[in-house]
Simulated assay, not measured.
Amino acid sequence: MKRIVILISGRGSNMQAIVDACAREGWPATVAAVLSNRPDAAGLAFAQARGIATATVDHKSFDSREAFDAALAEAIDGFAPDLVVLAGFMRILGEAFVRRYEGRMLNIHPSLLPAFPGLHTHRRAIEAGCVEAGATVHFVTPELDHGPIVAQVAVPILPGDDEGTLAARVLQEEHRLYPQAVRAVVEGRSAA
């Protein structure tokens, strides 16, 4: 049975989709823990209500990225994960941290990578005149949003779309795509 640790910063809607799919579909895995860098992250309550261990490593308590990364890694390692899943985790992680989990850490990014890495992806896609946007699940590497791609989904950009309407439609697809991609990795059907 594979052990998954999920990192969140907010409500954790992608985490919820993964937890629900894992239980409903009977994956050969368990979500061992949900960790957040924010003590007020709403997703922690969801995890606790389902009997999933939670922990907070507040990035504001550390003087450096390296100190935060070290404390976060220690907390993660306490749950002995086979897979670390970033689900709306809004911190850039340092190279040493990423290397520690290389080949077993996933992220979802709200664009069709390699297009639009970083922030404000929906606005940038609309401003560029793209006809579609989407989401990409990828293995995390030290270069931001550039790891090996596991899965993608395209979402059309409709006339009149703004950043908010497009983001909402992409997020709906993320909730379908991310659990499928995590399951593929857990079952050995996709690797970095």
Rank of each mutant, 00 (worst) to 15 (best):
Met1His: 15
Val5Lys: 10
Leu7Cys: 10
Leu7Asp: 02
Ile8Arg: 00
Ser9Pro: 05
Gly10Arg: 08
Met15Pro: 07
Gln16Trp: 00
Ala17Ser: 15
Ile18Met: 02
Ile18Phe: 00
Ile18Glu: 01
Ala21Gly: 08
Ala21Cys: 07
Ala23Leu: 14
Glu25Pro: 06
Glu25Phe: 05
Gly26Tyr: 02
Gly26Lys: 10
Gly26His: 05
Trp27Cys: 14
Trp27Met: 11
Pro28Gly: 14
Pro28Leu: 11
Thr30Phe: 00
Thr30Glu: 15
Val31Ser: 12
Ala32Asp: 07
Ala32His: 04
Ala33Phe: 05
Ala33Lys: 11
Leu35Ser: 05
Ser36Gln: 03
Asn37Leu: 05
Asn37Glu: 02
Arg38Gln: 13
Pro39Gly: 12
Pro39Cys: 03
Ala41Phe: 09
Ala42Lys: 15
Leu44Gly: 06
Leu44Trp: 03
Ala45Gly: 08
Phe46Met: 05
Phe46Ile: 13
Arg50Glu: 03
Gly51Phe: 10
Gly51Ile: 14
Ile52Arg: 10
Thr54Lys: 10
Ala55Met: 03
Thr56Lys: 01
Val57Pro: 09
Asp58Pro: 11
His59Ile: 09
His59Gly: 06
Ser61Val: 01
Asp63Pro: 11
Asp63His: 04
Asp63Asn: 13
Ser64Glu: 08
Arg65Phe: 00
Ala67Leu: 06
Ala67Gln: 05
Phe68Lys: 06
Phe68Trp: 07
Ala70Arg: 14
Ala70Thr: 15
Ala71Pro: 05
Ile76Phe: 00
Asp77Tyr: 02
Asp77Thr: 14
Asp82Tyr: 08
Leu83Phe: 03
Val84Phe: 01
Leu86Val: 14
Gly88Thr: 07
Gly88Cys: 07
Ile92Gly: 07
Ile92Gln: 14
Ala96Asn: 14
Ala96Cys: 02
Val98Ser: 03
Val98Phe: 01
Arg99Glu: 15
Arg99Cys: 06
Tyr101Pro: 11
Gly103Arg: 10
Gly103Ser: 08
Gly103Met: 03
Arg104Phe: 04
Met105Lys: 11
Met105Phe: 02
Leu106Ile: 13
Leu106Tyr: 03
Asn107Val: 12
Leu112Pro: 13
Leu112Arg: 11
Leu113Thr: 01
Pro114His: 07
Ala115Cys: 09
Phe116Ala: 06
Gly118Asp: 06
Leu119Thr: 15
Leu119Met: 15
Leu119Gly: 10
His120Ser: 12
Arg123Val: 06
Ala128Ile: 12
Gly129Tyr: 01
Val131Tyr: 02
Glu132Trp: 04
Gly134Cys: 06
Ala135Trp: 01
Thr136Ile: 12
Phe139Asp: 00
Phe139Ala: 08
Pro142Ser: 06
Leu144Lys: 13
Leu144His: 03
Asp145Asn: 13
Gln152Leu: 09
Ala154Pro: 07
Ala154Thr: 11
Val155Leu: 09
Val155Met: 13
Ile157Gln: 15
Ile157Phe: 14
Pro159Thr: 03
Gly160Ile: 01
Asp161Gln: 11
Glu163Cys: 06
Thr165Phe: 00
Ala167Trp: 04
Ala168Leu: 09
Gln172Lys: 15
Glu174Phe: 01
His175Asp: 04
Arg176Ser: 05
Arg176Asp: 01
Leu177Glu: 11
Gln180Gly: 08
Val182Ala: 13
Val182Gly: 12
Ala184His: 04
Ala184Val: 05
Val185Glu: 00
Glu187Asp: 12
Ser190Arg: 15
Ala191Glu: 13
